[in-house]
Design a binder for these strands. Structure first.
Lengths: 193, 193
DNA sequence: GAGTTAAGTCAATGACTGTTGACTTATCCT
DNA sequence: AGGATAAGTCAACAGTCATTGACTTAACTC
């Protein structure tokens, strides 16, 4: 009985494969511990590779972070959505982004400490969130979008970084039910001032 | 005309004076840059003193931070306050804390990166914020207080750390007008789920 | 004014860090 | 088989950091 032909476990990965592995490990570490607390050596150890490879493939720790903190919100188009349905269209999308990749948490953690990260978060907001929300705001789109941002970021910070127990205990649906009317109000309610 | 008797500028401060000066400088630095990015050497240089004194008076950088991030919210007693007046009693207090001492910002910046800081923030919340808000919540006090926390923290993060332009541009009064109904709803509105 | 004590300096240590360049080794092609 | 090339290792550098202990100097007391 002949041995089944088996593809040999490659002792060396292809360059794109290790590069991707490093990027994954970086996302996880940055998301969990923040930019400053993570060392290139740790990331390399996670992948089982020499620290020099991290620099080889990404150039520097900063460049690695920049790539690890990249992600797409893919917010839905809100034009023509009824006000009472706005939040229900948005909130699940945010949960998905927070829990899928560690990119967002990486960025959030870094943004409180690093100017570049804060600017990147701001750019993400003005380029992805603000335009999407503008389609739903009855007036003052910039202000209304910013207010929605405070609530969304506050929830992410409290539930995923600080892990406030009551928030961790609540389900997605419960949270959506609490948050939705607030977002609707910010977007379509009477303006202040 | 005799020279007025002048207390000689002491070339050496008293120990409590330098200790206090170090603590002030630490608060400012930690509030602006976060725990990891701040060095003991910087703080010492701000005060015009040798780095060794920082350790001498506080034991370690960690211990210094712990003391620098200490502050009191002094939230008012909310028992008997009418629902529509709740937020107006609370919001100005938060603005004051955020803008007065750098203690809160120090803690917020550190909390995204350090477990101890995050726990300290959580303790602050459960020991000061939650009890005060419980007096105003119609039911589920823990959950309602946590939700208020998300909005408050989100505003602090967006306006003072990320410096989202529309939020920076708005006055205290405008922000209060936007935020107040939301806090009221979280505390006294219909429960979700 | 001598002597004690408190306030502050100084230099060094040991541990990490990101980053580099020279080297080694597996894999593929012919 | 043998060389070319990609993948990966290795040791070291140059810098920074918190922390330490021995030392110096000012201020106060008797």
């Amino acid at each position: 009985m002949p041995e089944p032909r088996r593809l040999p476990e490659p002792r060396r990965r292809s360059a794109p494969a290790t590069r991707a592995a490093i990027l994954d490990a970086a996302r996880a570490r940055f998301g969990a511990d923040g930019f400053d607390r993570v060392t290139v050596r740790e990331i390399a150890a996670d992948v089982g590779v020499d620290p020099a490879m991290v620099i080889r493939y990404f150039g520097s720790k900063d460049a690695l972070f920049t790539e690890a903190a990249e992600f797409d919100l893919e917010l839905p188009d809100l034009t023509g959505v009824a006000p009472e349905d706005l939040a229900d269209a948005l909130v699940p999308r945010f949960f998905a982004v927070w829990e899928d990749s560690a990119g967002f948490l990486s960025l959030l953690r870094a943004a409180t400490t690093s100017k570049v990260a804060a600017d990147k978060m701001l750019e993400l907001f003005t380029r992805q969130v603000s335009p999407a929300l503008a389609a739903a705001a009855v007036d003052r789109p910039a202000e209304r979008a910013a207010l929605v941002g405070t609530q969304i970021l506050g929830l992410a910070l409290s539930r995923y970084v600080l892990r406030v127990p009551p928030l961790v205990a609540m389900s997605h649906d419960e949270l959506r039910a609490w948050i939705a009317p607030v977002l609707t109000r910010y977007l379509t309610g009477p303006a202040a001032g």
